[in-house]
Each structure stands twice: as structure tokens, then as C-alpha cells.
């Protein structure tokens, strides 16, 4: 399999995950509403999604994307390290490139850790029924809001969910613009605009996801 193919997979799955994050953050901003309206709306939304076959199909695509992204990222990180040889005694990389671009794999490991914990917290309980069972709200919908509420009244989880958004932000800042170049977008002015969009995107995603646990904590 060629050098290009592996990178195309990482870029395509990465972009798909980037789109997913937008949808996920939009929905999660319901959690910022006052308790009374947030619980009903959030649970109704989450039930609708779970019952929609199209969404179920997309969710399988999502799992596959994460798996392929991680596998190919691991493969190319190892291969690239082999290409590099012994390395320099003195190397001032920070003078010609960003730290995030030099450490995508390292940042990815933190994101993977986050994804695993996050799935155990929510997905395993709601979808797989593993762990503490989940109750129903007054409308008879699975009370996902309650999971969020209890989870984010534990200060350790709140800190974990906030801090792990930092590596995500760095990964996205480099990843978004890089993915477009990998897939062959080479318009020079367009790339300058893209660099700005990536910065804004990374900020909105990491701050957006990071602020939700904090606000729920103080509810």
C-alpha cells in the first residue's frame, strides 16, 4: 500500500471526525440551557438519534473512522520514525514548524485516552448497557442528561474532560489544514484562508467542549 494511500485514509477519516465534532458540539450545547428545559430536550434528541437507522449507519462509519485513523496513524508514525535515522544532537525544530505539527501522534494518544474514557462513561452505559443502569425521564426517554449531570459533579471528571480538550485543540489546529493538503488542495490563497479557519475551528471545538463540563458542574 502506497505512502499516499495511508495518508489519504488518515486525512479522510480525520475530516469525517472533524465534521462529527461540529454536530456533536452543537447538540451538546443543549446542556448549557437551564436544567428544566435541558433535560427534556437533550434526552429527546438523544433518543431520536438512537432510533434513527440512518444515524445508526453513520455511527458505524464513525467507529470505523476512529479505528482506521488510529491504526494508520500508528503505522505511518512508526514508518516515519524508521525513515528518520538517528536524529540530530542539536535540532531547533521550533524555529521552522509548530510543536503540534511535530507531535501529532503524541497528541493523538491523549485523544484516544479521552475517547476510551468518554465511551465508557456514556456509550457503554446507554448503548451496551454495561455499568450502572440508566433510568428514564418523565417523558419515558433514556435519561442521558442524568448521566452527564452526575458525571460532571465529580470534579475529577470535570478536570479530565477540560484538560483533555487541550491536546484535541492542538491536534485539530494542525490536522484540519493538513488534511486538505493531503487530499490535494493546493490553491495558495485558499490555503491561507484554510489556516485561519483551522485555528478558529480548533478554538471553538476545544473551548466549546471544555466549557460544558464546567457549566454543568456549577448547575
Amino acid at each position: 500500500m502506497s505512502i499516499f494511500f495511508r495518508k489519504f485514509i488518515i486525512a479522510a477519516t480525520g475530516l469525517f471526525l472533524c465534521i462529527f465534532l461540529i454536530v456533536h458540539l452543537s447538540a451538546n450545547s443543549l446542556l448549557l440551557l437551564p436544567e428544566a428545559s435541558a433535560r427534556g430536550l437533550y434526552n429527546a434528541y438523544s433518543t431520536t438519534l438512537r432510533e434513527n437507522p440512518l444515524i445508526t449507519a453513520v455511527s458505524y462509519l464513525l467507529y470505523l473512522s476512529i479505528i482506521f485513523h488510529v491504526i494508520y496513524a500508528a503505522i505511518i508514525t512508526i514508518k516515519n520514525r524508521k525513515s528518520k535515522g538517528t536524529g540530530y544532537r542539536v535540532n531547533h525544530k521550533q524555529e521552522n514548524s509548530t510543536w503540534a505539527s511535530q507531535n501529532m501522534g503524541f497528541l493523538g494518544v491523549f485523544i484516544l485516552l479521552f475517547i476510551v474514557v468518554h465511551l465508557v462513561n456514556f456509550w457503554a452505559r446507554v448503548k451496551l448497557g454495561i455499568g450502572e443502569s440508566v433510568g428514564l425521564d418523565v417523558d419515558g426517554n433514556t435519561d442521558v442528561y442524568e448521566i452527564t449531570y452526575t458525571l460532571f459533579h465529580n470534579i475529577y471528571y470535570v478536570l479530565f474532560y477540560i484538560l483533555l480538550m487541550i491536546p484535541l485543540g492542538f491536534h485539530l489546529h494542525h490536522g484540519l489544514k493538513s488534511a486538505f493538503k493531503t487530499l490535494g488542495f493546493y490553491h495558495k490563497k485558499g490555503l491561507r484562508v484554510l489556516a485561519k479557519i483551522s485555528l478558529v475551528y480548533a478554538f471553538v471545538m476545544s473551548i466549546g467542549f471544555g466549557v460544558i463540563p464546567l457549566i454543568v458542574y456549577f448547575k
Binding site: I3, K7, I76, S83, N96, S97, K177, S178, T182
Partner: peptide, 14 residues
């Protein structure tokens, strides 16, 4: 045995 490109952009600077 050259590696793949991560677009760190170090090359275009040097």
C-alpha cells in the same frame, strides 16, 4: 525509504 509528509512545513522554511 523516505517517509510520508505531515505538512509540518519545516521544509519550505529551510
Amino acid at each position: 525509504g523516505f517517509g510520508s509528509c505531515t505538512f509540518t512545513a519545516a521544509c519550505e522554511v529551510e
